[in-house]
């Protein structure tokens, strides 16, 4: 059987928020290492990759590798029934066709369980090559969400240009042009508030705002976000999930044709 108990249930609620705008359904692949999910969005433009390590759970048991196809809309409805303070347990019998979510209130005076049917999803797993990125930018996640929201008013694409001085986000369209420049933080006193750039070579790439905005639904998971860029390879937008894992979004740059 499979059983994973997460003391900080709110993390799973936030993970749902990070996934459900882009994905309708996905397979949750469970092994003794933890839970992994990888899926392309409905238009097959972007890719989402989630990893939750077994060690991050209060209790984790996976007798046999298990892939649980879930409708994320339904799963989101069930997770909305959990309070932020609840302990959440996911469990399933081996080769079961349902999964059960158990929500325990902190003082155990209220225990809820919800059983959901599983789906048969065709397993398509993409190989993601190890890449040494030209630029890696770490910035406050709320800052990145604000930039994406503000600039997407100007155009459907955003140019992200990175040099060793800083990073510039630009968008242009019918109403005009917007530019936001973030300087590399001089002193890094508060880690999560800092803008830290590691640059092998300057890069300037164009991305579709609508996907970037969907990625920022993960903002509540982490105070900072990391953007990794190289010419002609997909951008990686990564949000760490406490000490248990991460969610990564991949999006190809737009190219002048």
């Amino acid at each position: 059987m499979f059983e994973a108990r997460l003391l900080q249930g709110s993390l799973l609620k936030k993970v749902m928020e990070a996934l459900k705008e882009l994905l309708n359904e996905a397979a949750w692949d469970c092994s003794d290492a933890g839970i992994q999910l990888q899926a392309m969005d409905n238009s097959h433009v972007s890719l989402v990759s989630l990893n939750l390590r077994a060690e991050g759970f209060d209790k984790y048991r996976c007798d046999r590798n298990l892939s649980m196809g879930m409708n994320l809309g339904s799963m989101s409805k069930i997770l909305k029934c959990a309070s932020n303070e609840d302990i959440i347990t996911i469990k399933a019998q081996d080769n079961a066709d349902t999964v059960t979510f158990v929500f325990e209130s902190p003082d155990q005076d209220k225990v809820s369980d919800y059983e959901m049917k599983l789906m048969n999803l065709d397993q398509e797993h993409l190989g993601i090559p190890e890449t040494d990125y030209a630029c890696t930018i770490r910035l406050p996640s709320s800052e990145f969400a604000r930039i994406c929201r503000d600039l997407s008013q100007f155009g459907e694409s955003m140019v992200i240009s990175c040099t060793k001085e800083g990073v510039r986000f630009s968008a242009t369209g019918d109403i005009g042009t917007g530019n936001i420049k973030l300087a590399q933080s001089a002193k890094v006193d508060k880690e999560e508030e800092a803008v830290v750039i590691e640059m092998q070579e300057p890069v300037s790439l164009t991305f579709a705002c609508r996907y970037l905005n969907s990625f920022t639904k993960a903002t509540s998971l982490s105070k900072s976000v990391q953007l990794s860029m190289s010419p002609e390879v997909p951008l990686v937008v990564e949000y760490k999930i406490e000490d248990i894992g991460h969610v990564r979004y991949y999006l190809a740059p737009k190219i002048e044709d």
Binding site: L47, G127, Y250, D257
Partner: peptide
């Protein structure tokens, strides 16, 4: 115009 490539142009099926 700018073209949006899909992710499958970069990552191959395992």
């Amino acid at each position: 115009t700018v073209a949006q490539m899909g992710i499958l142009a970069f990552f191959t099926q395992d």
